[in-house]
């Protein structure tokens, strides 16, 4: 392919993908009346949209809620996922393959089918309007098990055997031998669980109705469709921008990990 053409296409693509975000960022600093116009830069810079967001919703608190939920879910998915993945690859026990197939099956059932019964279960446990209801159902993650299992398969079994003969307990083998060898897979699984959980909206909308325990995507979505934004565009965009910002920053900082992680999930999932 010709170089100039390639660059034109690449730059065009970059504009298509990045320009909306740039526009959104600048629009949040415009006076409300100006947002509909085509000019990219605000005629006068104002923080009015942000003031309205912070006045109407506890968005800072929702950020912390999201952070707590996503950190616990991610670490738990990695811990229990690697335990299961290790059992599936390095321990021979009856029912191992059946167990693995069950996990594969769970991935094919759409979440929507389970939504209502799961909600009633959460109601029975009294976990509505709490972070527990957002965390516990997602503490295990099938994708994480799959990714970790794939990685553990490549660790030579004789290595594990040698460790066993040396008297290492299974716990020690997992944490001191298998984990250090599986940092890339742990990162991959961690990032996938993290992003998926961070962006989840539907489940929090059902389980949490109390503003104090809402997650950030939920709060922004409700702010936008509910009456909170008072049909003003500026605050909606400002809230959306604040929701996107943490993950964009995280992505720009660790973009190599993000990209390779998500690509592997595609290959293996």
């Amino acid at each position: 392919m010709k170089k100039p053409f390639a660059y034109i296409a690449l730059v065009g693509g970059a504009l298509v993908f990045a320009y909306p975000f740039v526009w959104m960022m600048l629009a949040t600093f415009k006076p409300e009346m100006e947002i509909g116009r085509l000019a990219l830069l605000p005629s006068e810079w104002t923080l009015e949209s942000y003031r309205l967001v912070f006045e109407s919703i506890p968005i800072g608190r929702s950020f912390l809620n999201s952070l707590v939920v996503v950190l616990i879910v991610t670490s738990s998915a990695l811990l229990f996922g690697s335990m299961a993945g290790y059992a599936f690859t390095k321990i021979n026990f009856r029912g191992r393959d059946a167990g693995y197939n069950i996990i594969l099956f769970t991935m094919m059932v759409p979440f929507m089918v389970l939504l209502i019964p799961l909600y009633t279960l959460i109601v029975k446990f009294g976990w509505t309007d709490s972070l527990v209801g957002l965390i516990v159902p997602f503490m295990m993650n099938a994708t994480a098990v799959l990714i970790l299992r794939q990685s553990f398969l490549t660790i030579p079994t004789d290595l594990i055997e040698a460790a066993r003969i040396d008297g290492c307990s299974e716990w020690r083998i997992l944490f001191t031998i298998v984990w250090p060898l599986s940092i890339p897979a742990l990162t991959t699984a961690g990032i996938i669980v993290f992003i998926g959980n961070w962006n989840e909206v539907l489940w929090p909308i059902m389980v949490v109705r109390n503003e104090d325990w809402m997650t950030m995507p939920q709060m922004v979505a409700l702010f936008s469709v509910g009456g909170g934004a008072q049909s003003k565009l500026g605050p909606q965009l400002a809230a959306a921008f604040m929701l996107g910002l943490p993950i964009i920053i995280a992505f720009l900082l660790f973009q190599r990990h993000f990209i390779s992680s998500l690509a592997t999930s595609g290959l293996k999932g």
Binding site: L10, G13, A14, F17, A18, P20, F21, M24, I195, W198, N199, V201, P217, V220, A221, S224, Q236, L237, A239, A240, F241, L243, G244, I247, I248, A250, F251, L252, Q255, F258, I259, L262
Partner: peptide, 21 residues
């Protein structure tokens, strides 16, 4: 790698942000 990063940006951002946008 710059272009790759830019193309990937919408992937990581929440669907809520994209819908509002």
């Amino acid at each position: 790698s710059f272009f790759r990063t830019v193309y990937f940006l919408p992937v990581v951002v929440s669907g809520v942000v994209v819908a509002i946008l």
